[in-house]
Design a protein around this nucleic acid. Sequence first.
RNA 1: GCGCCCGUAGCUCAGUGGAUAGAGCGUUGGCCUGCGGAGCCAAAGGUCGUGGGUUCAAGUCCCGCCGGGCGCGCCA
Length: 559
Amino acid sequence: MFREALRREIRDAITRAMESGAIPSGEVPAFEVEVPRDRRHGDYATNAALLLAKQAGGVPREIAQRLVEFYAPPPDRIARLEVAGPGFINIAVAWPWKRDLVATICRLGDGYGLQAIGAGRRVNVEFVSANPTGPLHVGAGRNAVIGDVLANLLEALGFSISREYYMNDAGQKVHNLARSVEAHYLTMLGQPTPPPEGGYPGEYVKDLAGRLVADDGDRWLRVSEDERLDHLRDISVTAVVADIREVLERFGVRFDTWFSERALIRSGAVDRALAEIRARDYIYEADGKTWFRSTCFGDDKDRVIVKPTGEWTYFGSDIAYHLDKLARGFDLMINVWAIDHIGDVARVKGGLAALGISPEALEILIYQHVRLKNAGEYLRMSKSSGEFVALRELMDAVGVDAARYFFAMISPAVPMDFDVALALQHSQDNPVYYVQYAHARIAGILREAAAAGIGAPPAGGMEAPLPLDRLTDEREAALIHALGELPEVIRLAGLRREPHRLCAYAREVAEAFHLFYTHCRVLTDDPDLTGARLALVEATRIVLRRTLGLLGVSAPDSM
RNA sequence: GCGCCCGUAGCUCAGUGGAUAGAGCGUUGGCCUGCGGAGCCAAAGGUCGUGGGUUCAAGUCCCGCCGGGCGCGCCA
């Protein structure tokens, strides 16, 4: 809020100073308006003079001094401007401007922080997309939160977002699932059958077979193996997808589109994509296989795109899939992938490049694996080992709010240790409670005010002028400063694809509030002071609820 | 071997080329006579893996090395 205005005004000051010859003219550098680490330096600081000095020569502190003279903002907005250190300009926001922000937030309500940067550009965010061969494990939880929160952020920035799940429901993996169910099915009907090579050992596989026996009895013994496997695959995938969908919904994630790879292949889209790449001469036949010249796009060797059996490799359908997304009108595709797919990034982009599509149309956000720790021991997690911990179990154990907050809290680029024992034993210590507690406290104050007949400020219109000039305390100032950062946090977290910034911010706001709360009583016998502080409390509630909302974490009125 | 990522407090992690590197947990010691103590205050704890380089300024950018993760499938 403050930052946008400061950036604009400093840019104007630079332009005016250049025009008058007070500083060397040239391009306006990409300067920063940042919060100084040491808050005694003021609310904000800019390095504009340092960059100008570097660019056009001159003494940084002198240039800073000139800028200060040309800036000359009205005193009801900036209380102090001073040149400091090597040439920073420190900026202290004046009280009237801070008080304005409180009124603005109360007026905007949940609209506070919304921006128009995206200008309606259509963005497809594809995430989770786990193979439908079994229940989601905890790694999918991290993927889900990163994707969902990023989608929320981009929506707040004015992008038009579609959330998508790509189901790899064709190919060997789902075939193996069908074989695994078949083995149990046959065994249950008196034909002992060992589990297949590459099969899935989980309990859910047996349940699927059991359900089939209950529903259809031995009907599927009396058909051909192909027919049986087709049916088993269909019912298994359907059941697994339903389970995945249910878990994700409980986890607060809803997709606009569940995209089927089988349907894509059946539509002929993959054949068409291949034909187009072939027309551009990036395809050749050798050893009975069809190859893609990925070496033309920086790969270290060419890749098979059609196997000797005539089946597509995953690569063919991947290309067709991304073409399909573009055909649906998206300006940008963002995929959230686990680190083990890092090698595929260049290949898929290469495939798209072969069709003349800019690599910038597809952005792949890589996140590191989640390691589950239990009392210091790392748990092996893979579906084939059968030893994975399901997202459902984790969610049941620590709660949706804690799980989401925890997954969101850590930068995607950093491998994450999730200590199950700790989460189970000390879930009360999870940082999410600190933030939620601040919200609950606020709700308590507003309840109390209402019960005492004190009119809390309405979230919508604030027609009556508030006695905000009664806000004078340094903790009030610090809290307002924190509230002012929401738009910038949303901007950075969204544009840099760094959802974890929201958690750091939520904590900051909660901390500033708790500090305010301990030192500044809200409900007093001074009506004006009470009114002013109630407005600040309401503004804080809006910001906390908004931030938690972007994280998909609840903002409870009581705990 | 090649490619990408990570290395910051005892542990888990923040950190936008900028001023004295920050949180949480854990440890130690304080604070409940009015709105929720799931809170507040204070202390201890760091050669930012390592060696160079660029810069007025490097945890941040570049190069080498060490340690770790993940890839380098006619698996998806």
